[in-house]
Design a binder for these strands. Sequence first.
DNA 1: TTGAAAGCGCTAACAT
DNA 2: ATGTTAGCGCTTTCAA
Lengths: 330, 330
Amino acid sequence: MKTKRTSLEDIAKAVGVSKATVSFVLNGKGDQFNISKAKQKIIQDTAKEMQYVPNFFAKSLRQGETKTIGLVVSDISNSFYAELCKSIQEQLHANGYNLFIVNTNDDDKLELSLIRELFQRSVDGMIVSPSNKIEKLETILKETKIPIVFADRPVDPSMDFVGVDNFTEAKNLIGKFSKKPNKLAVIFKANSLVVTLEDRIKGARAACDELNIPMELVQLPDSQSKANTVIKELLNNQFDSFLVLNNVVVMKLLASLRNNKSEIGKNARLICFDDDEAFEFVEPPITALRQPIKEIGKQAVDRVLARIKDHLEPGNQNLRTCKLIERKSH
Amino acid sequence: MKTKRTSLEDIAKAVGVSKATVSFVLNGKGDQFNISKAKQKIIQDTAKEMQYVPNFFAKSLRQGETKTIGLVVSDISNSFYAELCKSIQEQLHANGYNLFIVNTNDDDKLELSLIRELFQRSVDGMIVSPSNKIEKLETILKETKIPIVFADRPVDPSMDFVGVDNFTEAKNLIGKFSKKPNKLAVIFKANSLVVTLEDRIKGARAACDELNIPMELVQLPDSQSKANTVIKELLNNQFDSFLVLNNVVVMKLLASLRNNKSEIGKNARLICFDDDEAFEFVEPPITALRQPIKEIGKQAVDRVLARIKDHLEPGNQNLRTCKLIERKSH
DNA sequence: TTGAAAGCGCTAACAT
DNA sequence: ATGTTAGCGCTTTCAA
């Protein structure tokens, strides 16, 4: 049970006016209602003295809006999403909105139930980086009319989306190697083939087809020793270029390459999709494609807020561009 | 404005019973109130059909509790806090509670205002990793009676705390170098001297005093070239051991050491307070002290929930122990 | 076995 | 210039 707090009525009684008057004053409408400066001051002071904190729920119940946005991501402990959260939170806060973050662990069932929980809390809008495909999401999305914008992972052109064109970005990356690849290995981690990675693979494949580069998709095993074996095989087969699909496996790959006496930057080349703080400091520093995470967060927020305000129709595909951070490995 | 949703009354009308009956049934108290199975079923079905979602705010307003815990951290994009958030969220979710995360950026003013915002939303309890010192916090904490437990950063023995004994852990670390340090450099990053780091420094100092090891506290500059100069100086002065106060500067330090031809693991040794995924894969793999983050999150949640339930008094200091991950650098 | 009604704290239309 | 009051959607006591 919540401890009893000071209510509007308590103040009204203390000052000797009505609840309405207090409400007006405390909401900055004192002048608008011609309440005398003196009385306004008394009310303000009494409120402060009694440590009045408005009951958010009564307010929300009354006004039908919560000034809260729900954010659904697959894993806050992933640095990409952690930064996205931060950016979204900042932008929201600047607009007087709050943020409700929720973690799905890429569990389809959990995602559905968490989204429902968010509805239940009457968030005014949602930003979602979905694990589920559109078909599963559709049912639940029909339950509500609140604006939803998808971020990072697209679902359907009929929905709002802010993110990156993974296909094209990956495709362009192939031309960035300092030497045309003899054979290209596209590296990913076990159990991580979400839409974004699939698109990156397609992009790489398209470029390789155009440029006549043999390409192979390879999953790096979790164990370091098995990873070493896989990489050795690749090296023996004249693979000299590596495109890493996201930053979670780069370090392991690097260790494997080192282990096989392959010198990145000399007899082999590597580019990573997604940047990481550590990339600047490893040997050699790793060339990476940096997504404009802050920008994506900001745009997503601007879009939900705009839709809340102006009742726009969804369907806006907002594609931001990545930036290649050229270090020494490519 | 929120779109109108199905309410209890809508269902009551549709079925032809009272709001009360519907409320009983939907809250699983149908049997308790001897409502006929048949009627219960009709009500359940109608609710589903009409996509009834209870209004959380009306419920909270009525019941005076929100089943929500507020979490205040300084930076979600820091991997330590990101993991802590995740752990707390999972444990809370398992107990039917929700989590409200809020970012302070170690800005004292912002922290105060965000905590107040959390009160306003009537969270049932709070978990805080504070930026402010106890004096500043005290005023605001007096405004409420909800249970608050501090995590990671302690403030005062009269409060609940879950975390690590930074002093002792750091002190013990000094004995873990594979060779007794000739001179020890304790490395930290600019503008990061929060309580936890201060305690780690004191711990290191205590150990060095006991063991007669000259120790110096050094702040690693942000620019790599300046960092190189600082490290060079240290090396010239026979510093052969490095204790890094947290994981954010390790990579830069490593680059500086490499740049100065110092071979970690051979003529120099390094241990880091706080682990990082990448540490396993760099050359050489870095020995680090790992905090039991998951455990800290779980304990913090258990404690708030217990205090909500049983109205316990605060003052519980729950110290968890760290684990040294011995790799090659120490 | 079910219904009526009060009330949680707030806002705003309507009175005065 | 300020007070009265209805009502947001829900739970729960009391009455029938």
